[in-house]
Design a protein around this nucleic acid. Structure first.
Lengths: 146, 146
DNA sequence: ATATATCCTATCTATCTAGTAGGAAAGTAG
DNA sequence: CTACTTTCCTACTAGATAGATAGGATATAT
């Protein structure tokens, strides 16, 4: 399961894609996604640090995508917030290391299955970009207060 | 990421598949997988309740698969221990419900992506059975104490 | 009866989740 | 230079989950 953090991040990214080339403030995004503003700010900061978005401080400031929506995949956003997509570190491409509870990776009886699962998930989420999401759901996000 | 519980469960199931038609005690399985015996017992109990294995109490007792290895998928074992494979409840087939943090499922901008991811993961893990795992790694599991 | 093995309950510690609160730093406009 | 806005940073908290451990009750075979 994704954490709320990752879901808020994904929804925020889609909102930024919709707003482009205009920027949105954390308050704007909080309104549009239902995420608590202060919590959202921390998440947006992580996305800034991951290089996915840019931030402008001060009056008239806000956030905007650092790349075009076609170039930002769901996989990247999830990795930036929740970490690797893989079901175990030993099959992760972005954060590979031996599992603490498994001595011999080579003869591990469950690793091949986890590898297939990772590849399948990664393929789906890397193909799916912010542009895909925009095209599929062209309307504004439903408001929580509605 | 899978919990240790799920990994122990999967490894235990593969060991039971290898041992069949002989049964194994919790101590046997703990030895072969590196899982703490008492922790493992709790896990095995969950697998019993999920109908994946059978337990025999008393002297000469132990655990054994309730179906043939070809009929038990990795997906089932993971669901029995860690819960749904899906990244969100709203795209889960086995535990479907609306996400607490999302009012309108129909217009959700991230749901289609999560649906694709779930389908891809489920397909991979449902196809992969204990028999598949046995065939791929015919040797005994590496010992933690080795 | 005794030994064996699963089943059940309770407890514990550390970490993670999902925030809240308060303010510092930076940028803009007058 | 001052006021205002907006991001950035630090600290804190309540509650849940992970990953166990401990001790014993219950069932079974000899």
């Amino acid at each position: 399961m994704l954490s709320r953090k990752a879901k808020y991040a994904l929804k925020a990214m889609v909102q930024l894609a919709r707003a482009a080339p205009q920027q949105l403030t954390s308050a704007d995004i909080a309104d549009r996604t239902g995420a608590p503003r202060k919590f959202l700010e921390a998440i947006l900061l992580e996305l800034v640090r991951a290089g996915l978005i840019l931030a402008r401080r001060g009056k008239g400031g806000g956030y905007l995508l650092n790349r075009s929506p076609e170039q930002i995949s769901f996989a990247e956003v999830i990795r930036a917030t929740d970490g690797p997509l893989a079901l175990a570190p030993c099959v992760s491409k972005t954060a590979f290391h031996r599992c603490a509870d498994c001595l011999d990776m080579e003869t591990c009886s469950i690793r091949p299955a986890l590898q297939l699962a990772r590849d399948a998930t990664a393929a789906a989420l890397e193909k799916h970009t912010l542009a895909t999401a925009m095209a599929q759901t062209p309307e504004a996000e439903a408001q929580l207060g509605a």
